[in-house]
């Protein structure tokens, strides 16, 4: 159990990123991540995160701090923060989504996956391929066959823009 001096102070955790940077955060902020929570419950105060790089970890700590201080009155502020948080490049979004998935932060996962989904919605397959640099490895015959199998999904006008 914690000593008396520790209980007066806030309990702290140290997170170590994949590129060996260490960050000290309050335990109450960290345990929003299921992965960290499980480690804390097992008595750990030093948490190595071999799958999370520094740049993503800084952003995620920011997010956790903001959401740990959620009250009724700062709802709007958090909404604005969230909006800015996901307003970034796809590369960053994927880095964040992998980190959030590893850390099991479900509200952040939901927000990131929704952001990525919103950018795929209504786009043509060709546009999606270009946006995400997906290399089509089907032969033209195979592609035609797959299109035919669920033809109704490919009917209509799609968004060809790459933003």
């Amino acid at each position: 159990m914690a000593s008396t001096t520790e209980t007066k102070q806030k309990k702290m955790l140290i997170l170590k990123s994949a590129d060996n940077d260490e960050f000290e955060i309050e335990e109450s902020v960290g345990v929003q991540s299921e992965t960290i929570k499980n480690l804390v419950e097992d008595g750990f105060t030093f948490v190595p995160l071999p799958n999370v790089y520094t740049k993503a970890l800084i952003k995620i700590i920011d997010y956790l701090k903001k959401h740990a201080n959620k009250t009724d009155s700062n709802d709007e502020e958090i909404k604005t923060f969230d909006k800015d948080f996901v307003n970034t490049t796809f590369d960053d979004l994927f880095e964040l989504v992998s980190a959030a998935n590893y850390l099991h932060i479900s509200c952040l996962m939901n927000m990131l996956c929704q952001t990525i989904a919103d950018r795929i919605k209504d786009k043509s397959p060709e546009a999606v391929r270009k946006i995400f640099h997906i290399n089509c490895d089907y032969t033209p015959e195979e592609e035609a066959k797959i299109r035919k199998a669920n033809a109704q999904a490919f009917e209509g006008q799609f968004d060809e823009s790459l933003d």
Partner: peptide, 27 residues
């Protein structure tokens, strides 16, 4: 394409099914 399967699931579940079906043609 290399995101873990469960993350891809989470993204596709947030799309209308028609949009999700269209991803079958990507690769």
């Amino acid at each position: 394409s290399d995101l873990p399967g469960e993350v891809i699931n989470l993204i596709l579940m947030r799309l209308p099914l028609r949009d999700a079906v269209r991803t079958s043609i990507l690769s």
